[in-house]
């Protein structure tokens, strides 16, 4: 549906400046991303006009006491791609969001460079790995983590530290395409691990269709 009428988004954030800023970035994108609605809580994503949006941009810390994992889980389980967009650069929170089925985890410090691309990727159900998320996956020491190859870890950590794929490409002597391929494959490994969620299944299915990973590798 995204291909017919362009990508649409609903923005959930309790800070008016963020709502205005993200709306402005979406309007300035080429082609533009249409903002179907914006609101201070996840209800905006469930009711018209936000219900029809391709992607939900969700601030994880709304008015409640802790992170809004419940909102994220409900959206992911119903198949809505969610770009978590937060102030927090926290490994546990990032990995928990992936586990619950977020499309990607983006910090506000990274926003300008990555948010539009992350929204487009989420709408197409393809992986998008910003640097902080790469760092969180590359240093993951939890017991249930997916098995990564040393090369995959290298790519994740270089991307986390350099924030520039050109630099990573020079350091590791790999093409930018290969680097993207490594990042996407790691993201699919994470989507294939832990609790099931509709968004995770869609991400894995799409990766298999695109030939990014084969069934045997999973």
């Amino acid at each position: 549906m995204a291909s017919h009428r362009g990508t649409s988004v609903i923005i959930v954030d309790d800070h008016p400046a963020i709502l205005a800023g993200v709306s402005a970035w979406c309007a300035a994108a080429d082609p533009p991303i249409s903002v179907l609605g914006r609101g201070p809580d996840a209800g905006a994503a469930w009711h018209d006009p936000g219900r029809a949006a391709d992607v939900v941009v969700l601030d994880l810390y709304l008015t409640g006491p802790g992170p809004g994992y419940g909102d994220l889980r409900r959206l992911a389980d119903s198949g809505r791609p969610v770009v978590v967009y937060t102030m927090r650069e926290d490994q546990d929170i990032a990995l928990t969001c992936l586990e619950l089925g977020a499309a990607t985890y983006l910090t506000k410090a990274e926003g300008e460079a990555h948010l539009i691309e992350a929204i487009r990727a989420a709408a197409r159900h393809v992986p998008y790995v910003p640097p902080i998320l790469a760092g969180a996956m590359g240093t993951d020491s939890r017991s249930g983590r997916p098995r990564l190859t040393p090369r995959e870890v290298d790519v994740l950590l270089e991307w986390f530290q350099c924030e520039s794929k050109d630099t990573v490409s020079k350091v590791l002597n790999l093409s930018v395409n290969t680097i993207n391929c490594y990042l996407d494959r790691v993201r699919i490994k994470y989507a294939n691990a832990g609790r099931p969620a509709r968004t995770k299944a869609t991400l894995v299915a799409r990766a298999i269709q695109d030939g990014l990973v084969s069934l045997d590798e999973l």
């Binding site: 590359g138 240093t139 870890v153 950590l157 986390f160 530290q161 350099c162 924030e163």
Partner: peptide, 17 residues
């Protein structure tokens, strides 16, 4: 500037750009 610390089981890496 951006400073990052990546800690794995065998290494600690500190980078600055």
């Amino acid at each position: 500037a951006r400073v990052t610390v990546a800690r794995r089981a065998s290494t600690v890496t500190v980078s600055v750009v």
